[in-house]
């Protein structure tokens, strides 16, 4: 019954969650910060890959199209955990082999950077599909009209396609963001001290597993609810001026 007493004894529970040592509140917040850093970095990288991938899939040459199809199919068919595991060792090795091959010394890739790159690479495959669908949803007549005005391809993308597709893409992008924040937990398996790994370390040291897993769960819920709100606001903004197809809700 220790855990139960521990939970309801304010001094004890608060002591374990206190910000400064011997409390574990500080490390938990550091873990949360790591989670957010990796998630934001991977999301930016994944979106960049996604935009390139979507355009490559739609307007690229036959080889680009096929390569993109291989990338999105393979990445989405293999468990993220295994992709992370393979790439986590492969990326630094390849980087260092390239560097030593070019005559430079080995470098140290911080796990946070490798984790971000790996998650961004995986997210890129999903983002490609979401953005491709959104670009296709923009009525073709609009693109043709823009072209008729003499806009260049870049101008068409910047002024017509991208702003319009954002409304269609945002629900999918919101889902990917929520999945990504949870996928950062997979980095725990390779010992990266993000939120989930930190809560396991705290639980292992203090044996108050329930307390720390619950605390971590609450923090994840806060991220989830807050970002859900933000994305809903963004979607409303992106859909401004559009006829309310879905905006009104059921």
């Amino acid at each position: 019954m220790n855990w139960l007493l521990g939970l309801f004894e304010p001094g004890h529970a608060l002591g374990l969650l206190a910000y400064s040592p011997p409390g574990w509140g500080g490390p938990l917040l550091v873990g949360l910060a790591h989670t957010m850093e990796v998630a934001v970095g991977a999301y930016i990288l994944g979106t960049v890959i996604g935009v390139m991938g979507a355009y490559g899939k739609l307007y690229g040459g036959p080889v680009t199209k096929d390569l993109m199809a291989v990338y999105t199919t393979c990445v989405r068919a293999i468990p993220e955990l295994i992709e992370i595991l393979i790439l986590f060792y492969l990326v630094p090795e390849v980087v260092n082999q390239v560097l030593t091959g070019m005559g430079y010394g080995r470098i140290d890739l911080p796990p946070i950077l490798v984790g971000t790159v790996v998650l961004g690479f995986v997210l890129g495959a999903y983002m490609t599909e979401v953005l491709r669908g959104a670009i296709l949803a923009v009525p073709h007549g609009q693109v043709e009209a823009a072209r008729a005005y003499g806009m260049s391809a870049l101008q068409v993308a910047r002024r017509v396609t991208l702003p319009q597709m954002l409304g269609y893409a945002l629900p999918g992008m919101a889902n990917l963001w929520l999945n990504l924040t949870k996928d950062t937990a997979l980095l725990a398996v390779i010992g990266f001290n993000e939120l989930t790994e930190t809560s396991l370390q705290a639980g292992g040291t203090t044996k108050a597993f329930m307390l720390f897993f619950t605390a971590a769960g609450v923090l994840y819920m806060v991220i989830s609810v807050a970002s859900g709100r933000l994305f809903a606001m963004a979607e409303r903004w992106a859909r401004r001026g559009q006829p309310g197809i879905r905006g009104g809700g059921i």
């Binding site: 390569l67 990326v91 390849v94 980087v95 560097l99 470098i107 690479f121």
Partner: peptide, 21 residues
């Protein structure tokens, strides 16, 4: 994919070369 890894490698090399010294 290889091309991307190379590109990322170059990016990463620039990013952390300061640390490596």
């Amino acid at each position: 994919m290889k091309k991307q890894i190379l590109a990322l490698a170059a990016m990463a090399a620039v990013a952390v070369s300061g640390v490596a010294q």
